[in-house]
């Protein structure tokens, strides 16, 4: 379990991280999302005791990282942005070293074999790390974090340099680990985060810009219920009929996608689900509904909207801002 309260880091008068608070329960994966230089790595470095915070606290399994760093660190498996690998060691030699460094008590051979199997590096265990590809190095870095079976895993861009198949494997491993660990996972790649994480925090300019589940994030930003429908039939009549749906705000025909088939963009007032009515209308007139999809924003759109500073304030960020003013 990770508890972060009002964590702040200043370098001189530059605010690298400003008043970040969140909690990660056991068996939960939290995604850390943000553009480069947003403060993701700085936050992770503070959680793992690599750098100190200017103010605020970080508790790892209830232990303050600054008050009892050795105990707190023993609960953490950390994969930094650049895996801390000694290039002139073999994979096995390196993992033995980490095992000793962490003063691990688990049965040595069995545990190391288990970790190497999980991260699929058993076949390179006798090779020098400097001869490994980036994807393999990254996996050795992940193996290093898993040694000692720490209850908290902090992974800074674990999939960098891997091919798509490896990414899939590592993400499913992380997902599996997430069942009985507290995991923080940072990434630039939204689809990875969306597929893996229970909750997402978007960090921008050192502050939490959004904090919610992936689905809610998309819903909140798209606010209005928008639908894209592809219907075969006479364009003018269809538009006229669709404008009669309850709660509809606007309806317009888009391009002709196939001969006689147009795409219609519909937007309803918040709280209205217009899909059933739409279907009924199409049936009544004996037109054909060829496709129907919701035009909710994807996480990608959300991310861009939030980080490009389009001024979208999410309910959660709202609450936080309120809390801040109360305290201030």
């Amino acid at each position: 379990m990770i508890e972060v309260r009002h964590l702040t880091k200043h370098y001189g008068d530059k605010h690298a991280v400003n008043d970040i608070s969140f909690t990660v329960e056991d068996g939960e994966i939290l995604g850390f999302l943000g553009p480069n230089g947003a403060g993701k790595s700085t936050t992770m470095n503070m959680l793992t005791g690599y750098i100190s915070s200017t103010s605020g606290t970080a508790l790892i399994n209830g232990v303050d990282i600054l008050e009892d760093p050795i105990k707190a660190k023993s609960y953490i498996g950390y994969l930094p942005e650049l895996p801390p690998l000694y290039l002139d060691m073999t994979v096995k030699g390196y993992l033995h070293y980490i095992y000793d460094l962490k003063k691990c008590k688990l049965p040595r051979r069995a545990h190391l074999n288990e970790v190497m199997t999980l991260t699929q590096i058993s076949d390179v265990q006798d090779r020098l790390i400097k001869n490994l590809s980036k994807g393999y190095r990254q996996r050795v870095g992940l193996a290093q974090a898993l040694i000692g079976n720490p209850p908290v895993l902090i992974l800074d861009e674990p999939t960098v340099g891997m091919d798509p198949r490896q990414i899939q494997e590592i993400l499913s491993l992380i997902k599996k680990l997430g069942r009985n660990h507290s995991v923080i996972l940072s990434s630039h790649i939204l689809s990875e985060i969306q597929a893996t994480c229970d909750r997402i925090i978007i960090i921008n300019h050192g502050v939490v810009a959004a904090h919610d589940t992936a689905d809610n994030l998309s819903k909140n930003v798209s606010a209005d219920h928008r639908v894209l429908a592809r219907i075969e039939g006479p364009r003018e009549e269809i538009v006229k009929a669709l404008r009669n749906i309850d709660g509809i705000r606007y309806c317009r025909a888009d391009m002709e996608r196939e001969p006689g088939v147009f795409e219609y963009e519909l937007e309803a007032a918040p709280g209205y689900d217009i899909r059933r009515q739409l279907f009924d209308i199409v049936c009544e007139h004996h037109w054909y509904l060829l496709s129907l999809r919701s035009a909710e924003l994807t996480l990608e759109d959300v991310f861009l909207k939030i980080t490009m500073g389009e001024g979208i304030v999410l309910p959660d960020a709202d609450k936080q801002a309120a809390a801040q003013t109360e305290e201030g």
Binding site: T48, I76, Y78, P80, L82, P84, L85, Y86, L101
Partner: peptide, 13 residues
């Protein structure tokens, strides 16, 4: 080699 980070985040003094 950036291995310092591994050392300083390990549970050792």
């Amino acid at each position: 080699q950036k291995t310092e980070q591994g050392l300083l985040t390990a549970p050792v003094s």
